[in-house]
Simulated assay, not measured.
Amino acid sequence: MQAFVAIGANLGDARAAVTAAMDAIGTIERTVVTARSSLYRSAPVDATGPDFINAVVAVRTGLTAEAFLAELHLLEEQAGRERPFPNAPRTLDLDLLMHGNAIKDTPALALPHPRMRDRAFVLKPLAEIAPDKVPRAALARVSSQVIERIRD
């Protein structure tokens, strides 16, 4: 099953955390990272703290959406993620954007991710690795959000 994961961090060495998460996602059982976006810097949206470093990865996974999400939550915990209040700054944030063509809306999981089309920090890196998943109109709607591709 093809899936996409948005990765973000804005505490500590955010760049290192995002890069490490890209590698760690590939260690999840029955999961292989098939594409990685560039890293991007963006101001917090509906959150506080310093700028975020963001990326998106594409994977192939044999796990169900729920099992894959549970593994992503474990990676967040291992990275020291705390949730003291909604949208708090974070050492690592992993959002399951899509899992195949699944459409779900449960208290634990909504697919596709309900706010992904409102966020340049998701759409720009996703469009880089999977342009067929991001309509031009969606990119146009978020064009006023400041996001910068990090060039090495």
Rank of each mutant, 00 (worst) to 15 (best):
Q2R: 15
V5L: 06
A6W: 10
N10I: 07
N10L: 05
L11H: 11
G12M: 10
G12C: 10
D13F: 06
R15H: 11
A16E: 04
A16R: 06
A17V: 06
A17H: 03
A17E: 03
M22H: 06
D23S: 03
A24P: 08
G26I: 01
G26Y: 03
T27M: 07
T27S: 00
E29H: 09
R30N: 03
V32D: 14
T34W: 12
A35C: 01
S38R: 01
S38A: 04
S38M: 07
L39H: 01
Y40S: 00
Y40W: 02
R41S: 09
P44I: 11
A47L: 14
T48D: 14
T48Q: 15
D51K: 02
I53A: 04
N54V: 07
V56P: 00
A58M: 10
T61V: 05
T61K: 01
L63H: 13
E66A: 15
E66I: 14
A67T: 15
A67P: 13
F68R: 12
L69G: 08
E71K: 07
H73G: 00
L74G: 05
L74H: 09
L75P: 04
Q78M: 13
Q78R: 15
G80Q: 05
E82A: 02
R83Q: 03
N87D: 10
N87Y: 11
A88D: 02
A88T: 05
P89A: 10
T91K: 03
D93P: 07
L94K: 04
D95N: 08
L96S: 01
M98G: 13
N101P: 04
K104V: 05
D105N: 15
T106N: 09
T106R: 08
P107V: 13
P107F: 13
A108Q: 14
L111W: 01
H113V: 06
R115K: 15
M116S: 12
R117Y: 15
D118E: 15
R119Q: 13
A120D: 13
V122T: 10
A127N: 03
E128C: 02
E128K: 07
I129W: 07
P131H: 04
P131D: 07
D132P: 13
K133P: 09
K133Y: 14
P135D: 08
R136H: 09
R136F: 11
A137G: 08
L139E: 05
L139W: 05
L139R: 08
A140F: 12
R141I: 09
V142Q: 00
S144Q: 07
S144T: 03
Q145T: 09
V146W: 11
E148Q: 15
R149W: 06
